[in-house]
Design a protein around this nucleic acid. Structure first.
Length: 93
DNA sequence: TAGCTGACGCAAA
DNA sequence: ATTTGCGCCAGCT
């Protein structure tokens, strides 16, 4: 069945457990499009589904990246609350 | 159908 | 180590 790229991305992000983070590139690869990390970010902002924790998707540099509502700062707060260690704007692994 | 935009990635300086 | 510029793909108008 035809499933749009964003549909698969939503499915992948939805499987990310709390306390874990995945990079846009990893999500894109997991969705079947390893080079579409650009589109992933675009879909994240477009996706307002509470079942899709887009805040758990970070950049490859371990930077939180942008977010709706306060940008990086809000994202860091949410990740930290879930058990993700963030140090000075960088996700600590 | 074609063109533009963007919650990015990587290389170079 | 950090900053700047260019390239990339899918989605939207």
């Amino acid at each position: 069945m035809k499933v749009s790229f964003k549909e698969r991305v939503a499915g992948v992000v939805r499987r990310i457990p709390a306390g874990a983070v995945m990079t846009y590139k990893e999500v894109a690869a997991a969705a079947g499009h390893p080079g579409a990390f650009r589109a992933v970010g675009s879909l994240m902002k477009a996706n307002r589904d509470p079942a899709v924790p887009c805040h758990r998707v970070v950049r490859s540099d371990l930077r939180p990246g942008e977010y709706n509502r306060g940008g990086e700062r809000a994202k860091i707060a949410r990740l930290t609350d879930e058990g993700v260690t963030v140090r000075d704007g960088r996700v600590k692994r």
